[in-house]
């Protein structure tokens, strides 16, 4: 099973050059049943990554382009009056798909955003009184442009918390970009990707991950991290219990991907920037974006053993 996961990673890496770490983290996020927030400038390969993930894992893929005039109904679906049967028939929206790419989520109004986020959180959609379950697995990759751009509605902290990880692909390395320029965009090679896993295999893997062992000593480390965020003054606020749960879940998936059935501190450290970065703020910079320096501080100063 792990061999197949490795080949998944290799397939995606062939399409998205030079982003092994981010690809691995994205897969980790998916295995941990979390949702992913990609934050990047346009054209960095966010769509390619989502597409490749969907293909390799054999998941249905839908892309929802968020715009200022997007309505919740456009995401969830609407009921349309059918003349023949003389009743309303529900037309499911794009959200009823296994892997959703919510592109430029911060361009939509908060109302539409929250429609998606509520669906993510609950795994089901309630429209006109009827509750409809979302498919399983259900994985949302939301992308957002950095907030400095105009005409956007930044996601509030409470919404950010619903994403297990926030990743940033960043500019490709010089060699990767050269290869890209020579061989053409990765997106062209997407159709070449073969599915490596199916639904059943993915579900089996996802079920195994909570069984990855977390020892007392490791929980102590996670607690030390969390307590540091709560007690140190440079943190505007500390990690919530949901944050620490997310950290542990992601670390488990990471350890599983690494072929281990227990978590070591390095697993936690590997996922910490992606898991904690968007949940933390520096006190001196409350409007700022990230807890990048904070996370580095945590990695450096909190006793790992």
């Amino acid at each position: 099973m792990r061999a197949r996961l490795e080949s998944c990673l290799q397939s995606i890496d062939r399409v998205l050059l030079g982003k092994e770490l981010q690809v691995r983290l994205a897969l980790t996020c998916l295995l941990a049943r979390g949702h992913l927030l990609l934050e990047d400038l346009p054209g960095m390969g966010k769509t390619t990554l989502s597409h490749a993930l969907a293909r390799v894992l054999g998941l249905g893929f839908q892309r929802i382009q968020f715009t200022a005039d997007l309505l919740p109904g456009d995401i969830l679906g609407t009921s349309v009056f059918d003349k023949e049967s003389a009743q309303f028939v529900f037309h499911p929206g794009p959200i009823f798909c296994e892997l959703i790419l919510a592109d430029e989520i911060n361009r939509a109004t908060p109302k539409s955003q929250s429609a998606l986020l509520e669906a993510m959180e609950e795994g089901q959609v309630t429209i006109e009184g009827a509750t409809r379950p979302l498919p399983s697995p259900f994985f949302v990759i939301a992308t957002q442009n950095p907030v400095t751009q105009g005409g956007t509605f930044a996601l509030p902290e409470s919404q950010l918390d619903r994403f297990l990880m926030r990743l940033s692909l960043g500019y490709p390395a010089r060699a990767a970009e050269k290869a890209l320029l020579l061989a053409g965009s990765g997106r062209q090679r997407l159709p070449e990707l073969e599915p490596v896993l199916d639904h059943a295999a993915l579900a089996a893997i996802q079920a195994e991950i909570p069984r990855v062992r977390v020892s007392d000593a490791l929980v102590d480390y996670v607690l030390r991290l969390v307590e540091a965020t709560r007690s140190q003054p440079q943190f505007a606020w500390g990690l919530s219990p949901r944050g620490s749960l997310a950290l542990l879940a992601a670390a488990r998936a990471w350890a599983y991907l690494a072929g281990r059935d227990y978590v070591i501190p390095e697993d936690v450290q590997a996922v910490l920037p992606a898991v904690a970065g968007h949940r933390l703020r520096e006190r001196a910079d409350p409007a700022g974006q990230g807890g990048g320096t904070l996370v580095q501080w945590l990695l450096r100063e909190v006793a790992a053993v």
């Binding site: 070591i264 390095e266 450290q269 945590l298 100063e301 909190v302 790992a304």
Partner: peptide
């Protein structure tokens, strides 16, 4: 010397 935040494996 191990830095405080350095994991055993690293």
């Amino acid at each position: 010397y191990r830095a405080p935040g350095e994991g055993p494996r690293a």
